[in-house]
Nucleic acid binder design. Structure first.
Lengths: 218, 218
DNA sequence: TTTTTTAGTCACCATTTGGTGACTTTTTGT
DNA sequence: ACAAAAAGTCACCAAATGGTGACTAAAAAA
């Protein structure tokens, strides 16, 4: 059983498993997570639903395996050669811009975020935790040293910017694309968002270290 | 038929309609939009599902009527007395802060945003358009005059901030509450977000008018 | 080749869901 | 008091859905 098949066999467990996983992704992208039903997944994969139970134990396990197979965040790492003499300004700017475009182009990822906002599910929580852990590393190694006792403020600012670029990419998928007068579907308007991200980040790097630790005002 | 009932009648069309609408809201808040099925709505309302068809024509119309009945955005208006000599800095800051808390507290609104991100639906598009129209007024009357040829940049910045506060309030509902090291469920961490909003807005009002119109850089 | 294992299909059942016709009960008008 | 109209319930059906046992066909092992 555990031998490499000579030619292309008509029946192949791994290939079928993969087709089922692919079907989940396809349905997720096209119809969203509420459409992930056994019958639909099976017919989309062109296979019998029985196989879902045989190979994965059920739809839930199949879905979890799909989610775990997704490897986002692997693109957001920094190696030793990244220059962080500027406190990570250039690095962070590049990262935000890249993330903005990445979310924009990756529909499966959009749906996964949306799903994570909508439903409680262990594997989605896991995904969120992974993201958080990844981000924590970057903050600790790059920006915290630069901002010192203002590092929490910087994290809050980052939260707003990252959350903003997420939402701005989820928004135009369903109803309307205008948000604050910006057309999220137009290339030049998206460029304005990129500029705004740069501007806000630059101002933060320039002015946040100046402000004293405790002057909160409404 | 169109007379005021003497005492409290056991049968009352309007009251039943309202109960069905309330049931929609209750289910939406507790289970989200995928849970809005005829049988569930009827049993939640304590009425027969037949009435949904009789009074509204079907679940879809009932849901649309629920959505239209919601009147968000009525809280975000400005009267003649608001001081906009500062270009609307104080006003905008107050608005963002209020909106941040409003979304945080209003679970039905959160679910409605989420729904709008997830599904195409006329009444949700309408809601989004209303919001957009409301915002357009504020931009045109208050901030556009102040920022002049930089007003598009200001709109992009506003988009990021508003989108950010939306997402940061949707995020902690389902899986995990940590976002960029900020615990969105902790009061003091939410205060950091409010401070960050203030900081970014102040920097924008201070520095954006200085920058020339066309120096976009990566 | 024969046997045994495993991939894959199909028919079938139970449960849930959307939807409606026929009925009962209350209210309203005369 | 009576009849008409409207509020509300119930039983029932059709379609979709989740799930499984019994089967067939193809690979692998003997």
């Amino acid at each position: 059983m555990e031998k490499k098949p000579a030619a292309l066999p008509a029946r192949n467990k791994e290939r079928s498993k993969q087709r089922l996983l692919d079907a989940v992704g396809k349905l997720l992208k096209s119809k969203g997570y509420p459409a992930l039903k056994v019958n639909d997944i099976a017919t989309t994969a062109g296979l019998d639903k029985k196989l879902i139970y045989k190979y994965f134990g059920g739809v839930d396990q199949l879905i979890d395996e799909y989610i775990h197979a997704q490897d986002f965040w692997s693109n957001v790492t920094y190696d030793e050669e990244t220059d962080i003499a500027d406190g990570g300004l250039a690095f962070t700017k590049r990262m935000l811009h890249a993330q903005f475009e990445y979310v924009h182009k990756n529909k499966a990822f959009q749906k996964l975020i949306l799903w994570g906002l909508s439903e409680q599910r262990k594997s989605l929580k896991q995904l969120a935790d992974d993201q958080e852990a990844n981000g924590a590393l970057l903050f600790e190694q790059i920006t915290d040293p630069y901002f010192g006792n203002q590092s929490r403020q910087f994290r809050a600012i980052s939260a707003i910017l990252v959350a903003g670029l997420y939402h701005l990419n989820l928004y135009p998928a369903a109803n309307g694309s205008m948000f604050c007068g910006i057309d999220l579907k137009k290339k030049e308007d998206r460029a304005e968002i990129q500029n705004a991200l740069s501007f806000l980040l630059e101002q933060t790097y320039k002015e946040l270290p100046e402000t004293s630790s405790k002057d909160n005002n409404l």
